[in-house]
Nucleic acid binder design. Structure first.
Length: 429
RNA sequence: GGAGGGGUUCCCGAGCGGUCAAAGGGAGCAGACUGUAAAUCUGUCGGCUCAGCCUACGGAGGUUCGAACCCUCCCCCCUCCA
């Protein structure tokens, strides 16, 4: 079997490693490796997908991943690379979030028979005794060194409170705790965590006299320099209640050209030989590759059924697309003719009577959520960016009524090129 | 605790008594061009019952016909000193 290290390497997961040869060697045998996740919301978002995929790769290759929910450390807030102190969340909120994340992880990892573990650092951190902690752990840390750390630099200019300054000690302690109690010898995480992770490796060396390893992932931004998973609609969450599978799919299909290959490697399990095809694609074919990326990514997070519905909805909204069967054949995306299925396109329902009277276009555009204010809706339509059934809406106050229903009893509203909304009507009584 | 400097619209940042919903930039949105991408150019960019009105310049008061701009108190941030 291939060494996971090489899988990580060829798929672009690696930014820094403590010791490349040692890590590769260690990964020849099953080992335990952890990644921490912050329970700052009830769902993870696309930003956490790289670490999640890394855990899945580990498990698939016979290792034991630990997903560590940082309910304890979230009480402190990591100052690394942040310009300001983080909003402090209440204990209750954090605990609730931690519970939600547990469920979420089960979609990606198999927790049967301890094949993966999910732990919460509140279990050991909240019981620490202050004096004991200072004497056992605190004495191993040099303030001089910490002050020099890159991750604190920004904050030294703007102010760093003592509570945050301790974050590094706690994360290091986590690693030590997992090392001692769960034979965890490696930590992975985003590159912004490098300093905190090294602190853990260091602590293990000082206290246990043993070597642990860490590895960081690049912090991905899109080719346009945006953070992964942020759009004008807000964060792209992994929870289907918070971000619908259709929106999730659309996020991926809007990937920058330059990112398609990279993302296929990171966010799908397609074999690299097929992923590499993407590099030579352009125009229509590249768009197909984007559809495959979107489909596969949606499938991993929301399941195959949801992915198929999203793909059909996309076809319904943006037109027929027949998938070339030779393109990335490992993908489960349906090939050939695709049924158009509009049900995943967001919709609102009006009663027959309401619609029969006619509703001014800007009101309807606002009401269905395409625009966040009526003023914006007016401007949108006045500037020609509002469409009904693929025709520009002639005036902002043009009346939309039952006359505009199509054969399926739908009115399709569109904002710009990509944002669709369907207005349905209740059956006439 | 003391001295000084600050807090402006999503972000940065100008404004320092009326012409200020507030320059400029960034982000966002739309149009043109395209490939549901990028870049570029154009427009737009607080809300509404939209030629008018309402809400906004850390908070609360005050001066004034009129305040983001002046005064008082409070809160927060930064720098230096303890």
């Amino acid at each position: 079997m291939k060494n996971v290290y090489d899988v990580f390497l060829e798929r672009g997961f690696i930014e820094q490693v403590t010791d490349e040869t040692e890590v590769r060697k260690a990964l020849e045998k099953p080992l335990t490796c952890y990644i921490g996740f912050d329970p700052t919301a009830t769902s993870l978002h696309i930003g956490s997908l790289v670490p999640i995929m890394a855990l899945v790769h580990l498990q698939r290759n016979g290792h034991r991943p630990i997903a560590l929910v940082g309910a304890g450390t979230a009480l402190i807030g990591d100052p690394s690379g942040k310009t300001e102190m983080r909003q402090v969340l209440s204990r209750e909120t954090i605990d609730f979030n931690a519970q939600c994340l547990r469920k979420q992880f089960s979609r990606y990892l198999d927790f049967e028979d301890q094949k993966a573990l999910m732990l919460n650092n509140a279990d050991w951190l909240t019981n620490l005794n202050y004096i004991g902690f200072l004497r056992d752990i605190g004495r191993h840390f040099s303030v001089n060194k910490m002050l020099a750390a890159e991750s604190y630099k920004i904050r030294l200019e703007k102010g760093l409170s003592f509570i945050e300054f301790n974050y590094m000690l706690l994360q290091a302690y986590d690693f030590l705790h997992l090392f001692q109690n769960h034979e965890c010898v490696m930590q992975m995480g985003g590159n912004d965590q490098w300093g905190n992770m090294l602190a853990g490796v260091d602590l293990i060396r000082r206290i246990e006299g043993k070597t642990a390893q860490s590895m960081t992932f690049p912090l991905f931004t899109t080719a346009t320099g945006q953070k992964m998973g942020k759009t004008e609609k807000g964060t792209i969450w992994l929870d289907p209640e918070m971000t619908s599978p259709y929106d999730y799919y659309q996020y991926w299909i809007n990937t920058d050209d330059a990112d398609v290959g990279k993302f296929l490697a990171l966010f799908t399990f397609l074999p690299m030989e097929e992923v590499n095809q993407a590099k030579s694609l352009s125009d229509k074919e590249l768009n197909m590759a984007k559809a495959i990326l979107a489909f596969e990514a949606t499938r991993i997070t929301h399941g195959e059924d949801a992915a198929i519905v999203a793909w059909q909805a996309s076809v319904a909204a943006f037109g027929e697309k027949v998938m070339d069967p030779s393109l990335m054949p490992s993908s489960a995306i349906p090939r050939g003719q695709v049924a158009k299925e509009a049900s995943a396109i967001p919709s609102i329902t009006k009663t027959w009577d309401e619609l029969a009277q006619g509703i001014p276009a800007y009101e309807l555009v606002y009401e269905c959520g395409l625009c966040s204010s009526k003023g914006e809706a007016r401007r949108l339509i006045a500037q020609g960016g509002g469409y009904m059934n693929d025709e520009p809406i002639p005036a902002f106050d043009a009346l939309i009524s039952t006359d505009h229903l199509d054969g399926d009893g739908h009115i399709r509203l569109r904002k710009g090129k990509k944002k669709y909304m369907i207005v349905k009507v209740e059956e006439k009584k």
